[in-house]
Write a protein that binds this DNA or RNA. Structure first.
Length: 270
DNA sequence: ATGGTGGCTTAGCCA
C-alpha cells in the first residue's frame, strides 16, 4: 500500500500537477493539506474518474484537508478532538482496509510569540493526546501531513541560523519529539538515518535553487505500520515545476507482511 | 530592519 502526503497549497490551483503525479505514481491513499476550498468547491470528478473515494474537510479560503483512497473510506473523523472552539479545517482521519490513516495540517504559527504560535503548540498537544488514543488500539496507523516543524538539525538548511525561528523553535521541536516518543516512527528518517532531503522550500528569493529548505512534512507510523515499511521517498520533482506548491509530496510503501526492517538491518532505525 | 513570493480575494490574512 502506497500512501502519500502533500500540502498542495490550493487544490484548485494545483489540479494539473496533482493529477499528473497521481497518474504516474498511482498511490492507494492520498493525504492532502491546504486544499483551500469548501467541500462543494473541491474538484472531485477527476479523482472519482481515477477511482478514488474522497473524505473532504474544507472551511473556505484557508486550510482544508482531504483523504483520497482507492478502497472505501470508513469511520471518518473530521476534526482533531480536544477543542470544541477550533473550527479550522486541519484534520481528517479514516480507515482504509486494515490501516487507519490521518491527514493533518498543523498550524504554521506565523511568528514565535504570537497567538498563532500558541495555537500551534496547543494543536500539537492535542495531536499527541489523540495519537496516544489511536496507538492504544495497537493497529496499523499512519498520520501524515504538514507538521510545520523540522524535528532535528539535519532537517533544516542552517540549524544555527534558524534555531528559534518559526518551524524550528525549541518549543515546537519538543512537542514533535513528544509525539514521536509515544512510539511513532518517522517513515523517511527510519529508512534514511542520515538523509538530508527537504520537503518544503520558501517561495521567496531563490530558496529552492539555494537549497534553503526544511523537512516539515512527515509520515508518522505506529509500530505495526513501521514493521511493514518498505520504502519512503521525498519526491522533490514537482517542486521544481512552474507554478508549484511550496511543498513536495512525501510517500511511503507498506508491504503486506511484517518484518521488512528486521530482514534489512542496513536500513534499520538508528 | 524590512521585504522578499504565493493564493484567495480584492486589503489583508495566512503561510
Amino acid at each position: 500500500m502506497q500512501i502519500v502526503t502533500w500540502n498542495v497549497n490550493s487544490i484548485r490551483a494545483r489540479m494539473a500537477a496533482v493529477l499528473a503525479w497521481l497518474d504516474e505514481l498511482q498511490p492507494d491513499v492520498v493525504l492532502l493539506q491546504e486544499t483551500k476550498c469548501l467541500n462543494e468547491q473541491f474538484p472531485a470528478e477527476p479523482f472519482e474518474e481515477r477511482h478514488y473515494n474522497l473524505a473532504l474537510v474544507g472551511e473556505g479560503p484557508r486550510s482544508g484537508v482531504a483523504i483520497l483512497a482507492k478502497r472505501p473510506l470508513e469511520d471518518v473523523l473530521d476534526h482533531l478532538p480536544g477543542d470544541p472552539d477550533d473550527h479550522e479545517a486541519r484534520y481528517v482521519e479514516a480507515t482504509v482496509g486494515d490501516v487507519r490513516v490521518a491527514s493533518v495540517y498543523v498550524p504554521n504559527g506565523t511568528e514565535v510569540g504570537t497567538d498563532r504560535f500558541t495555537y500551534k503548540l496547543a494543536f500539537l498537544d492535542r495531536l499527541r493526546a489523540h495519537a496516544a488514543n489511536l496507538l492504544a488500539e495497537d493497529g496499523c496507523l499512519v498520520i501524515g501531513g504538514d507538521y510545520n516543524v523540522a524535528p532535528r538539525p539535519i532537517d533544516v538548511y542552517d540549524a544555527k541560523a534558524l534555531d528559534g525561528t518559526i518551524c524550528y523553535h525549541p518549543a515546537e521541536r519538543a512537542k514533535l519529539r513528544a509525539l514521536l516518543h509515544l512510539g511513532l516512527y518517522d517513515a523517511y528518517r527510519a529508512l534514511a538515518p542520515h538523509g538530508g532531503e527537504f520537503s518544503w522550500w520558501h517561495y521567496q528569493g531563490r530558496a529552492l535553487q539555494a537549497g534553503h529548505g526544511m523537512r516539515i512534512d512527515h509520515l508518522l507510523l505506529s509500530p505495526m505500520a513501521a514493521d511493514r515499511l518498505e520504502q519512503a521517498v521525498i519526491d522533490a520533482r514537482p517542486r521544481h515545476a512552474k507554478g508549484a506548491s511550496d511543498h513536495a509530496p512525501v510517500w511511503c510503501r507498506l508491504g503486506p507482511q511484517p518484518g521488512f526492517l528486521e530482514q534489512n538491518p542496513a536500513s534499520a532505525v538508528s
